[in-house]
Structure formats: structure tokens, C-alpha cells
């Protein structure tokens, strides 16, 4: 990246990563992708982190007394207010004269793209020194798999049932990354737990930027998706490989695709192995592919110039 203002950040890899755990002993379901995203991010951000979580899976599984899973400062916020509370934490820590800390939010897709969007927008507008990580498992999983603004087309959820006439969700995912980038945020990125090194690099980069930063990480959910618990990482990787999820960054006004494959892997294969897409017809899958192609055509045209 030619216009990268963040220079010479020590690279963090699984080899030199700390063995300390900051999110450990939680009660998440087997194969939980969200917990992988939180665990890895906190390993990068380290001990001096203020962690804020709204109502959602990670709050529900991380704060069950006496098994408090967070080894950092951590608090549960209101559902719509995580970004505002993080702004307050950042201001409070600053007032205390603390310098070597990072404030981070971990919010789900519903808590970010639906109810939490207003607070997030304000936080970015003020450029508060907060890293906001949205772990996206594509529905309200904690309350029992209801559709969110980031649930993709055709998904079976408890509020978008699939039958003969209706085939799950009728709308596409909100373009969350572009919405955030449109604020002219200092740094925003998309990632997937299926590409952990890429995710680690992005968290590391955001850690060293003072001001508002945002990472949208794709995190699989075997419980809500109807997938085997031992394939969470593969599924999250496959989503990227088939082009339904893209890895990109936005910095200094420029978009950059981190992965721009010449050929995509099969969308059909990715969809049909998940319970939530089992009902999809060939026509549905065609529609998903057409939407993907339209989006990639636009991204390639506008982003990698």
C-alpha cells in the first residue's frame, strides 16, 4: 500500500503471538466463529485493552459468573449504545492520563448494522480513539437466529422461514463496509476468520492508528448455519474463495481489495452444505451469483485503480 501512513508495525504471526489468553473459558457453542474473532483480536491488542460488548453472543457467553472469560477490562453495554460507551471509555481513560491503551468494541451483525448503527456513525464522525470490530455471523444468533440487516439473500432464519413460496430472506446484505468507509474513516477493513493472518494484520494495523477504526470480520456459526462444528474455519474461508465475502481495506480515501481471485470457487457448493441454504433452488443460487458478479464488477472497476 503506497499511501500507508502506518509504517513499520512489528508483524504478529501465530509463531510470535503471545501465549496469554484474554478470552478463555467462555461458554460459546462448539465451533463458534465469533469467539475465534474475539480471542485473536485480543491477543493482538494485548492486556491494556478496554473491551466493550453489547447484548449478543459474546456478551452472553463471556460474562457468566464465576466463569468471567475476559482477562482484559470488559463491560457489557446497552444494545444500541456500544459505540457511544466506547467513546466514553476512551474519553475517560484519556482523562485519567492513560496513554498505552486501546478501546475495542466487539458487536454482532445485528448490534452493528441495525440497532447500533447510529452510535457507530457518531463515534466515527468524532474520530474517537476506538477500534470497532463487528463479528458477522449473519443473523441474531443469541436470541435464536432471527434475520438481521447482514443476513444474506435466501437465508433460513426464524423470522424469514423457508417454504414453497418464500425462500428465506428476500433482501441482500447491507453494504456495511462501504457505509463505514463513506464516513471517511481513518481505517476500515473486512476480514474472515478463515483467513486468520489477514485478520491479525488488520487488527494490528488498527491498533496502531489513533482515531476511529473498523473491522468487519466474517465469523461462522454452526448453530445458526446448520454446519458441522469442525468446519467453521473452512466455511469462513470458502465464503471468501467463492466471492460472497470479500477481503478489503479502506484507508486515506482509497479502497483496496486484498484478495482478487481470477476464478471463484463454487457458490453452489458453499451454499448447499449449510442447513440455512438447503432449500435454495438453482434459480435462487443463480440470483446469488448474479449479485456477487455485479458487486465484484463494481469493486474491481472502482477500487483497484
Amino acid at each position: 500500500m503506497t499511501n500507508d501512513t502506518v509504517l513499520k508495525i512489528p508483524r504478529i504471526t501465530p509463531k510470535n503471538m503471545t501465549e496469554k489468553e484474554f478470552f478463555y473459558g467462555h461458554k460459546a457453542c462448539a465451533g463458534c466463529g465469533g469467539s475465534v474473532a474475539v480471542r485473536l483480536a485480543l491477543k493482538v491488542l494485548g492486556e491494556r485493552t478496554y473491551t466493550a460488548l453489547p447484548a449478543g453472543c459474546m456478551a452472553a457467553v463471556g460474562f457468566i459468573f464465576p466463569q468471567m472469560a475476559f482477562n482484559t477490562n470488559a463491560l457489557i453495554t446497552t444494545f444500541p449504545g456500544v459505540a457511544s460507551m466506547a467513546s466514553g471509555i476512551a474519553a475517560g481513560a484519556k482523562a485519567l492520563g492513560q496513554k498505552d491503551f486501546k478501546t475495542v468494541c466487539f458487536a454482532g451483525d445485528g448490534g452493528t448494522a441495525d440497532i447500533g448503527l447510529q452510535a457507530l456513525s457518531g463515534m466515527i464522525d468524532r474520530d474517537d480513539d476506538v477500534l470497532y470490530i463487528c463479528y458477522d455471523n449473519e443473523a441474531y444468533m443469541n436470541t435464536g437466529i432471527q434475520k438481521s440487516g447482514l443476513t444474506p439473500y435466501g437465508t433460513l432464519t426464524t423470522t424469514t422461514p423457508a417454504g414453497k413460496n418464500i425462500h428465506g430472506t428476500k433482501t441482500n446484505k447491507k453494504n456495511l463496509f462501504e457505509i463505514i468507509a463513506a464516513h471517511d474513516i481513518k481505517y476500515a477493513a473486512t476480514a474472515s476468520i478463515g483467513y486468520p493472518q489477514d485478520y491479525i494484520n488488520k487488527v494490528n494495523k488498527a491498533k496502531h492508528i489513533k482515531g476511529a477504526t473498523f473491522i468487519h470480520v466474517y465469523a461462522s456459526c454452526p448453530t445458526g448455519w446448520g454446519t458441522p462444528t469442525n468446519t467453521s474455519i473452512e466455511i469462513a474461508r470458502e465464503a471468501v474463495d467463492c466471492g460472497l465475502i470479500f477481503l478489503a481495506e479502506y484507508q486515506n480515501g482509497d479502497y483496496k481489495l486484498n484478495k482478487n481471485p481470477k476464478e471463484f470457487k463454487s457458490v453452489k457448493e458453499y451454499l448447499t452444505k449449510q442447513g440455512r441454504f438447503k432449500h435454495m433452488t438453482d434459480a435462487d443460487i443463480e440470483q446469488v451469483i448474479a449479485y456477487r458478479d455485479m458487486k465484484w464488477e463494481r469493486m474491481r472497476r472502482n477500487w483497484n485503480s
Binding site: 444494545f79 444500541p80 445485528g110 441495525d114 440497532i115 448503527l117 441474531y140 443469541n142 436470541t143 435464536g144 432471527q146 434475520k147 440487516g149 426464524t158 423470522t159 424469514t160 422461514p161 413460496n165 418464500i166
Partner: peptide, 30 residues
Amino acid sequence: PITPQSEVMETLMLQKPWETTGMVVVQAES
């Protein structure tokens, strides 16, 4: 959605009253 009342909307979505009585069911963003 919010526990412990999510079944209200889930039941409405399953019953699809918009096809029978014409009742509207909307999932809001907050």
C-alpha cells in the same frame, strides 16, 4: 428480536397472515 418474547414474531412469520387476512408483519431494525 429479544428473549423471552421472540416467538411472537417467529410465529407470525411462520403463519404468514399477509397471505390470508392481509395483516402486515415487519421486522424492524430496533
